[in-house]
Each structure stands twice: as C-alpha cells, then as structure tokens.
Design a protein around this nucleic acid. Structure first.
Lengths: 204, 204
DNA sequence: TGTACATCAGTGAACGCGCGTTCACTGATGTAC
DNA sequence: TGTACATCAGTGAACGCGCGTTCACTGATGTAC
C-alpha cells in the first residue's frame, strides 16, 4: 500500500465518520456519499474497502481503540481524586461532547447495525469492561468482589455510561440547566451502583 | 374511517413490525416493501399514513402501550414472590423472547432512529420509569428514597433491562448455557443495584 | 542520480434496479331517504 | 328493506433519481538497475 493509498483510506474513514449526523445510521449512508465526501469517484472506493460493511468494521475498530485509550488515561489520571465518581463522570461527559462522532458510531450501531457490526462493537465493549475491571482491581477499589462479580459490575457501569453518552449527544446545545441536572442524575446512579457493589458480600 | 380502512391500517403496522428482522433499522425498510407485505399497492399506503415516519411513530406508540400494560401486570402479579428480583427478571426475559419484535423496535430505534422517533421512544420510556416508580412506592419496597431518587433508580433499572432485552434478542437459539449464565449475570446486576438503593440514605 | 517499467490509485461511462411520489381512475363501503 | 349517491380505499402507469457495481482506461507512484 502506497502513501497515497493510506491517505485516501484515512480520508474515506474521516468522511464516513463526519457523515454520522444524529439520526443517521450506517445503513442510511451510501457508498457514493462517502466517496463524494472523501473527494474520490465512487468506483475508487473499492480500491480501499470491499464493501460498506468492511468500512463499518474498520470504523468501529478505530473508534473503539481511540476511546479505550482515552478512557483508560482518564481513569488513571483521576485516581487520587476526592470525588472520584463525580469527577470521572464529568470528565467523561466533556470528552463525549468534544468527540461526539466516535460515540455516535458506538451508540448508534450497538443495537441497530448489521449483525456483523453489532458483533464487532460488542467485542470492543467487552474490552472496555475488562480494562475497567483491571484498573479497579489494580487500585483495590472494590476488594470485596470476586473477579467474576467485578466484571459484572463493570458491565453495568459501562452500560450506564454508554446510555449516558447517547443521551449527551442529544442534549440541546444551550441548555446548561438540563446538562447539570442530568449529569447529577447519572452521578447519583453511579454512586448508588458503586455503593451497592462496595457493600456486596459474595455468596449471600 | 371505515372498517376496511381500519383493517388495512392494522395490516400495514403488522407488516412493518414483521419486517423488523435483527439488523434492520426502520430507515432501511422501504414504503414499497411495507405495502407489499401488507398486500396493498404502494400508493395505497398514503391513504393511511402521511409518510414512513408517521408509521414509525404509530408503531412506537403501539409497542409502548402494549409493553407498559404487560410489564405493569408482571410487576403486580409478582408482588408476593420470595425472590422478587430474580423472578421478575426471568419473567421479563421470557416475555422478550415471546414478543421479540416489540422490543426490537424500542431497542433498535432508541439510539439509531430519526430524531422524531427517538423522541417518541424517550417519552414512552419515561412513562415506563414513572409507572415502575409508582408501583415500588405503592408497595413500599424502597421507603428510604425520596421520589426524585426513586425515579433515578428506576431510570437505571429500566436502562439495564432494556440493554438486557437488546442482548436477549441476539442470543443464539439453542444455547441454554449462555442463556442461563447471562440471565444470572443480569439478576446479579439488579441485586447489586437494588441493594445499593435499599441502603441509600439521602443527603449523604 | 537517472531511467525503464511494474504496480497501484483514480477515472468516467454505462447498466439495471428499487425507490418515493404524482395522477387520474375504478370499484367497494357506508349512509340518507 | 331497497335504492341512489357520496365518500373512501385500492389501482396501475408513469416520472425522475440515486443507488451499487462492471469495465476498460489513464495517470501517478514506487522500485530495480
């Protein structure tokens, strides 16, 4: 693959990501549209991807990797915080607002996409969950839980913040009150959830 | 509206629901396809709905109402149970498996649909949450919580079981082991969550 | 460093297809007397 | 209960459009000597 090839491939992926406006699913974006936005003729698309599904998979992979790196950095850098849960969530919220497209792909295609894409997203999310569990374990934040239960708690947490991400993408731009109110609601949900996890005794 | 009209309208909605195979979003279903499945010529569609979006709204409304009635009945009839949470979840799981299409609409379009449809689903889910909170309040299951916090807990619960529903729709048909394992995982999530809620003290 | 050549990326015409929507129509259904 | 008529539901031809994909091509890029 030549330098030119790599640049165009990147341009196609960026163009596709850019087309992920709210309310648009991957299925509703056409090959011709992506090609046009990437500045190439439709037929040239095939030089880089076999089909739109393959592009979707590459995109999921890309988003997944980027998000995992960012979120892990977030967790580790936040470690010493006095209000760990609140601070982590607010940081997460800001990150979603700063990079809406990445989350739009994951949220939007997680339940609606083609089976292939959905499976790929599921795998990415599982990695998410595992990394979160590893970090919590390494920091001994929930020493009472077995690895198995810890994973399950992280599943619940990731589900919750992905729901939050999806909602955040829909917030109207100006409404600071709503933004604060809903953020606090999610913070409370996470508090209750971690409170339950911290008081949990195995084999009850 | 005549009797014939009502029957055809119903046929259109049933046909659309039937087309909600896994991996198909509403956007990827065409007017002609729905009309064909409903046994009418494409142009006759307009006698009943202005557009596909209007059909989607009618469908969401229909699914929402049906599900709310069923789920409320479920909660109330399960009331005396010794293992309230587990029994409720298993009943819910069986109901999802028995009526997959209804959940496919709600799960699939909740994050991916057009803004109009997403808004409609959001409203239906809010009603869900409120009804659940009312029932829990009426049965004094979480007397320690303020109404505001109770609503927030129910939000978390509904999010969790909707994630579960989406996963249940994807379970391979035969795998009883997976089905049991994942069901127990969700039951544990709900236990932890309710445990946290039950031990929660306001104004901490 | 210069050149010849192979490979690779992008082009543009062409195809057949299913789409949403219009229109004037026909036949079925319901109602007023 | 029977009939005349208005309204309503369904028809079928037609339209222009954007779609994915094929193909033979041209020009750009990278490499071997």
């Amino acid at each position: 693959m030549t330098e030119r090839g790599r640049r165009t491939r990147r341009a196609i992926m960026d163009a596709a990501l850019e087309l992920f406006a709210p309310g648009r699913s991957f299925k509703s974006i056409s090959l011709r549209e992506v090609a046009g936005a990437a500045g190439i003729v439709p037929t040239a698309f095939y030089r880089h991807f076999r089909s739109m599904d393959q592009l979707a998979l590459a995109l999921v992979d890309d988003c997944g990797r980027t998000l995992r790196i960012q979120l892990r950095r977030m967790r580790l850098q936040n470690h010493g915080s006095k209000h760990l849960i609140r601070d982590s969530f607010l940081l997460f919220r800001d990150y979603v607002e700063a990079h809406p497209k990445y989350f739009a792909v994951v949220s939007g295609e997680r339940h609606g996409g083609s089976p292939l894409v959905r499976e790929a997203i599921r795998t990415e999310i599982e990695r998410f969950i595992e990394e979160m569990a590893e970090d919590i374990s390494a920091l001994s934040l929930l020493p009472n839980l077995s690895w198995h239960t810890l994973l399950n708690v992280c599943d619940l947490v990731v589900n919750t913040i992905l729901s939050a991400a999806s909602e955040i993408l829909d917030w109207p731009k100006g409404s600071e009150r709503l933004r604060k109110k809903r953020s606090e609601a999610y913070v409370q949900q996470l508090h209750i959830l971690f409170f339950g996890a911290a008081s949990w005794r195995e084999r009850r």
